[in-house]
Design a binder for these strands. Sequence first.
RNA 1: GGACCUGUAGCUCAGCUUGGAUAGAGCAUUAGCCUUCUAAGCUAAGGGUCGAGGGUUCAAAUCCCUCCAGGUCCGCCA
Length: 550
Amino acid sequence: MDFKAAIARLLEAQGIADVTLEVPPDSKLGDYAFPCFPLAKERKMAPQAIAQELAAKIATDPAADFLERVAATGPYVNFFIKQTALVAAAFEEPEYQPNGKRVVIEHSSPNIAKPFGIGHLRSTVIGGALKRVYEYAGWEVVGINHLGDWGTQFGKLIAAYKRWPTDITEDPIKKLLELYVRFHAEAEKDPTLDDAGREEFRKLEAGDPENVALWKQFRELSLQEFDRIYARLHVSFESTAGEAFYNDKMIPVLDELKAKGLTEEDEGALIVRLEDMGIQTPAIVLKSDGATIYATRDLAAAIYRKKEYNFDRMLYEVGSEQTLHFRQLFAMLKKMGHEWAEDCQHIAHGLYRFDTGKMSTRKGQVIFIEDVLQQAVERSLKTIDQKNPDLLEKEMVAEQVGIGAVIFFDLRSDRLKDIVFDWDEMLDFEGETGPYVQYTHARLCSILRKSGLEPKANPELLMTPEEIALARQLLAFPDTIEQVIKNDKPHILARHLLDLSQLVNSFYQKHRIIQDDKDLERARLALIEKTAARIELGLSLLGIMAPQEM
RNA sequence: GGACCUGUAGCUCAGCUUGGAUAGAGCAUUAGCCUUCUAAGCUAAGGGUCGAGGGUUCAAAUCCCUCCAGGUCCGCCA
């Protein structure tokens, strides 16, 4: 039962259309509260008088059988829910039916031949979490890894490889990174290198056999490494069509832009002016050397995806530094007459920084994601050896907990904020962390195992403040899911799970579950079982495993 | 110079979408809690001009304006 909705209906019956309810800060006041200030303003009456009048009317409404009582407390109407009704409702599991809508989520999108750095963690796990939450809520989801497998950078890489031949069969990504860094270092002194890079890319785009072969080799070696990481992060994609996939799809788009009179030539490049859309910077769709640019590919990609998937929404989980690019992209689509540009959204995130400044691949300042994962799993294993040395399958649990810590760290705060990278914070297992939530789950599982009794929900027996608070949090889950989807912010779910864990830990601390009163034990086991299942579900939506023991 | 994002406790962050009762957590500090269900836990204390100033409102961390600080971007990288 959704009490908020039920109370809203009761208030609406009194002629109040726009209802917002609050959970009072002090539970002694009641379970939900309706502030009468807006109504007082509208009706030009004292809010206290309105509260008294409403409370009296609702108290006699037979539809309010879930209410214990209604009271006017100053300018608020307070609704006291029957505690048995509240707890009973907490045991209901939300059910989502397929809603017939389809969302395309582009995320992760690392660059081929570059290391998978900590910067790509954000897009990978935020997109992954959104994907699972949408799926859970009944959407059909298409996850796309828009690989950066095309562009001038490959010209530079090929130029570097030809200039300084290197054996890249061993540890390919690190070797390729060294070439990339060396290229940029030497290009500082010798600007002709950049021209050479552009020339190699032009040849690649023209189908030069040698360059194409090199490109294929770089791509293949990179993908093998990426797949290893995706497996550990529990992320998968419906499509890995990268930028190269759209090579043969850009000419028609360019033709369409020209035919609609949207392009003009400027300093040798082909551009689209967007001042009329409120964007001062024009978008370049063809460079002065005749080569394409990412804006062209993203245009072709968007149009292709609409045709292929006919999405209701398309999300681009990409760093906030590309905000202007996406504004330009959506504006161009709109100008081309594609109304569905409204359905496209840039889901921006802040970046990982050092406290000294931005990380730069070009300067070789990179935190490799595999190093982070390895450190986390090592520390996790060390903790297990300390706290639970007899645990079976230590390595597997250490993997689940270590990876869980890293993913949760990334997902627990608002994606718009920058994160200053700090090993100690990322590898912390205490407080508001993934391992804390996992630990709570493992502890609940342990109680269920130890008792061995069959749980039996009995709201009449679950009346302590800790049980009521826990029930209320369980009840808030569908709201949380709705908020995550509305804002495309998985941290709302991460926070919900932290709150749930804190509440159940307080309950655990204060009340015995296994005890002589077997009816009470079975009732409390049911609450524990429900909470454990909810934590497992929530963590799985974030891409985190919930081990039974740790 | 322009655009967008961020600014809340010593540190890291929730809360702002939808204004409302005493602004919440975690870390760190201090004092407690393991002969009983996993102490990766729990309880309590101290710690706040919610960046600054104006405005709207009965009521502002929340909405509007100006300013300040940090970050990002501002045509041929993505």
